[in-house]
Amino acid sequence: MFYRYHDSPIGRLFLSGDDKGLQQLLMDVPRHPWNIGEDWQFAARQFDDVCLQLDEYFAGRRRRFDLRLSPQGTVFQQSVWKALQAIPYGQTSFYSRLAEQIGKPKAVRAVGTANGANPISVIIPCHRVIGRDGSLTGYAGGLQRKAQLLALEGASFPEQALLSL
């Protein structure tokens, strides 16, 4: 496994992965420290393309990522993460809609849990999932970052959703 850090407008990011692809893109959140395995190596150039595409995204010049991803999770989680990737740039969805899309309409809470377990934030856009009423629901990176990402993409959500931040 390789790892690397990348500075971004939403704070320092932690990247990790192997030859199969990117496995993690984590935000700096005190309650979720980054765990680096003893045998992991600092990435010299392994994530250059990831960093370039992230920089383009944050500069407003990239709407879709073209990267090899290898998130580790259950079959159910994988199906949710794939559905997240189908949410277009600048648009939002709801947990219930995602549950319907993966053919599990009664699994709304499980979809929310899988969304929260997304190991590749920003690129697998879990920030695009909001409450049915337009509220900014939980986000592992914090609601302020979620609002920042949605605003960057030009997604619409009620202004009162920002008042609670």
Rank of each mutant, 00 (worst) to 15 (best):
D55L: 03
E56K: 14
G60H: 15
V108E: 04
L98R: 01
V129R: 02
Q77K: 02
I36V: 06
V129D: 02
R62I: 14
Q78Y: 14
A147F: 11
P125G: 12
E159C: 08
D49H: 04
A107S: 08
F47M: 05
L84H: 15
G138N: 03
R64W: 13
I36W: 08
Q101E: 09
Q23Y: 02
Q101D: 08
L165Q: 09
A161D: 02
K106Q: 07
S79I: 08
T74M: 05
A114L: 09
H6K: 05
F2V: 01
F2Y: 08
C51V: 09
G138L: 10
K104E: 04
R64G: 11
L13R: 00
F14C: 01
M27T: 08
S96L: 05
E56A: 08
R45A: 09
F65E: 02
D55F: 03
R145T: 12
E38I: 09
D28C: 02
A155E: 02
A43C: 07
F157E: 01
R12C: 05
D48H: 11
A155P: 00
G116N: 08
G141H: 10
Q101N: 08
V80W: 07
A43E: 01
A43D: 03
Q77H: 12
T74Y: 14
I123Q: 08
Q144K: 10
Y95I: 09
N35S: 00
A140E: 12
L54P: 00
Q23R: 04
V122Q: 01
D66Q: 09
G90Q: 12
F14W: 13
R31H: 06
F58M: 03
L152A: 13
Y95P: 03
G116I: 02
N118H: 05
A107E: 02
F2P: 00
R61T: 14
A43R: 03
H6F: 06
Q101L: 10
V111F: 13
L143R: 13
R145C: 00
A83G: 04
C51A: 11
W81Y: 14
L143N: 10
R62T: 15
P125I: 11
G73S: 06
R63W: 13
L84W: 15
D18V: 09
S121H: 14
G21Q: 01
D39M: 11
D55A: 08
S70T: 11
D49R: 11
Q72E: 06
R64M: 11
G90N: 12
P88M: 15
V129K: 09
L143M: 15
C126H: 07
I102M: 00
K106W: 05
A99N: 10
Q53A: 04
R132K: 14
G73D: 10
F2D: 03
Q144V: 12
R31G: 00
